[in-house]
């Protein structure tokens, strides 16, 4: 597992039904591209997060394929319409097979 990986998510605590809310996500990750060479002249192996998904009550909101050109600590900001109270589930998939998860509940009010 890559070092110091920590997901962070910012979702409003409540929203009106049908309202579009802004979701911000950030995960600390070095996103090693696989193109760089180390001090010894050898290539540093690629180690990135290759996929990010967000689901709301089991329904997919976004599913992103991520590529090596994405810089360190990838940040995503997107909007989602909230039809009902429920839970946003966020998942990041690492090259090394690790899966990082976070979730946030939202109320209608």
């Amino acid at each position: 597992m890559a070092k110091d990986v920590k997901p962070r998510v910012k979702v409003p605590k409540s929203a009106a039904a049908g309202e579009a809310i802004v979701i911000k996500t950030l995960i600390s990750h070095k996103m090693e591209s696989g193109q760089r060479k180390g001090d010894d002249g050898n290539k540093i192996p690629r180690s990135i997060i290759n996929r990010f998904t967000c689901d709301f009550n089991g329904q997919n909101v976004v599913d992103v394929t991520m590529e090596p050109a994405i810089s360190t600590n990838p940040y995503f900001e997107f909007q989602a319409t909230v039809p009902e109270a429920g839970e946003f589930k966020f998942t990041w998939y690492d090259d090394d097979g690790s899966v990082y998860e976070d979730s946030k509940t939202i109320e209608i009010g």
């Binding site: 920590k6 910012k10 911000k24």
Partner: peptide, 12 residues
């Protein structure tokens, strides 16, 4: 603070 990448290091 959420957008500020420096806060990651503060958390560490």
């Amino acid at each position: 603070d959420f957008d500020n990448p420096g806060m990651i290091f503060v958390e560490q």
